[in-house]
Amino acid sequence: MGAPYHQFCPVSKAMELLDERWTMLVVRELVMGSERFNDLRRGLPRMSPTLLSRRLQQLERAGIVERTADGGDVRYRLTEAGEELRPVVEAVGAWGTRWIGELGDVDLDPKLLVWDMHRSVDVAAIPEGRTVVQLQFPDAPRGQRDWWLVITADETDVCDVDPGFDVNVSISSSLHTLTSVWRGDLEWGAAVKSGSLQVDGPAPLRRAVPEWFTLSVFAGVPRPAIR
Rank of each mutant, 00 (worst) to 15 (best):
G72C: 04
G72L: 05
D73R: 01
D73Y: 00
V74F: 08
V74M: 08
V74C: 12
V74K: 10
R75I: 12
R75C: 12
R75S: 14
R75P: 10
Y76K: 07
Y76R: 06
Y76I: 09
R77E: 08
R77H: 11
L78K: 06
L78E: 01
L78N: 09
E80L: 11
E80N: 10
E80W: 10
A81F: 06
A81M: 03
E83Q: 13
L85V: 10
L85W: 11
L85P: 09
L85E: 08
R86H: 06
R86D: 06
P87A: 05
P87G: 05
P87F: 06
P87R: 07
V88T: 04
V88Y: 01
V88A: 00
V88N: 02
V88M: 03
V89N: 00
V89P: 00
V89I: 07
E90M: 08
E90V: 13
E90P: 08
A91K: 15
V92M: 10
V92N: 13
V92G: 13
V92P: 08
V92A: 15
V92D: 13
V92W: 14
G93A: 15
G93S: 11
G93I: 12
A94F: 02
A94C: 03
A94V: 02
A94R: 07
W95H: 15
W95Q: 11
W95I: 14
W95S: 12
W95C: 09
W95V: 13
G96W: 10
G96L: 06
G96P: 07
T97I: 03
T97P: 01
T97G: 01
R98G: 05
W99A: 06
W99L: 04
W99N: 11
I100M: 14
G101S: 05
G101I: 02
E102A: 03
L103V: 00
L103D: 00
L103W: 00
G104Y: 00
G104D: 04
G104S: 05
G104M: 03
D105C: 13
D105L: 15
V106I: 08
V106P: 02
V106F: 09
D107T: 01
D107Y: 00
D107E: 03
L108T: 02
L108D: 04
D109Y: 01
D109L: 05
P110R: 02
P110K: 04
P110D: 05
P110A: 04
P110W: 08
K111L: 12
K111E: 14
K111S: 09
K111P: 04
L112T: 03
L112R: 02
L112A: 14
L113E: 01
L113F: 02
L113W: 07
L113M: 02
V114F: 01
V114Q: 03
V114M: 00
W115C: 05
W115N: 15
D116T: 09
D116R: 15
M117W: 00
M117N: 01
M117G: 01
H118W: 08
H118T: 10
R119V: 12
R119M: 11
S120L: 13
S120V: 15
S120M: 12
S120H: 13
V121K: 03
V121F: 04
V121G: 08
V121R: 02
D122T: 06
D122F: 07
D122Y: 07
